[in-house]
């Protein structure tokens, strides 16, 4: 038993999508205050992992604890930055509205947004250099700008654990640098950040710890121990054929069982 509650604890997490297994028996215990990258090939279940942690995708087995809590109430201390494709960019909201949504949890549901919340939202926009665009509809921003807005919203949430799904995807170099600076700053403040990342070339300099994932957990630990040829090859290399075959079968079976309930 650890003295302080771990930001994130995942035990034997198994997820399947449309009868196909995506994640298999994932175990993770993540310590407070780190910048952690999730790395793996396409279809390895990186996004699924954080979506399952957030309860957006239901798990078939295992459990997740966030700061020692399970279920609905545990999400309050988490800030989530979704993948850009998953957002409806035509929705009638301005940049400021989006950032203010991050304050909703603090403002109380039946109360109006206070002046303080607005000030904080503006500060967060300032941090990501987006103050000029506060009144724009979110669809009228470039990819990098949209990403920065969502980052600002996560900042406004003032969470302790951040989960980010490909925050560097479709972002120009300047923005990427700005974002990584910001993430480091957050880490300095003792926040825990878990980031889905697909670019191997800069993973080593960005993150303190790395989660190597390909359907199952290949390795988790400090960059210098995990970011080596052997483990990467294992992550990106061929899959275990019998394993996937059987896992497929069992998933089908589970699906049938599921239907009966």
């Amino acid at each position: 038993m650890s003295k302080t509650l771990l930001p994130l604890e995942v035990h034997d997490l198994t997820v399947s999508y449309n009868r196909k297994p995506v994640l298999y028996g994932i175990d993770l215990e993540i310590e407070e205050g780190g910048l952690i990258g999730i790395i793996g090939p396409n279809g390895a279940g990186k996004s699924t992992l954080i979506k399952t942690i957030m309860g957006i995708v239901p798990a078939n087995g295992g459990w997740v604890k966030i700061f020692g809590q399970k279920g609905k109430n545990s999400y309050r201390r988490v800030g989530y930055v979704p993948q850009r494709e998953s957002v409806d960019w035509d929705f009638p909201v301005s940049v400021l509205d989006v950032v203010l949504m991050g304050r909703y949890g603090h403002a109380g549901w039946l109360k109006r947004i206070s002046k303080k919340d607005r000030i904080i939202a503006h500060e967060c926009l300032e941090k990501v250099n987006m103050s000029l665009f506060a009144d724009r509809q979110i669809g009228k921003l470039s990819g990098g700008q949209q990403q920065r807005v969502f980052l600002a919203r996560a900042l406004a949430q003032e969470s302790d654990l951040y989960l980010m799904d490909e925050p560097f995807a479709g972002v120009d170099a300047v923005t990427e640098n700005a974002i990584i600076e910001l993430l480091r700053e957050l880490k300095q403040k003792g926040k825990t950040l878990i980031i889905v990342h697909h670019d191997l070339s800069n993973a080593k300099e960005y993150f303190d710890q790395i989660i190597l994932l390909n359907m199952r957990l290949i390795a988790y630990g400090d960059v210098d121990k995990t970011f080596n040829k052997d483990l990467l090859q294992k992550t990106y290399g061929g899959r275990l054929t019998v394993f996937t075959e059987i896992a497929d079968q069992s998933a089908k079976n589970e699906h049938v069982e599921h239907e009966s309930k």
Binding site: G25, D27, G61, R216, L240, F243, I246, Q249, S250, N253
Partner: peptide, 21 residues
Amino acid sequence: NEVQYAADHVHEDAEKIEHVL
């Protein structure tokens, strides 16, 4: 041995798989 699961994880899984192998 092959998938490198911890020994305390395998039982639940095998409970399901044994019927479909």
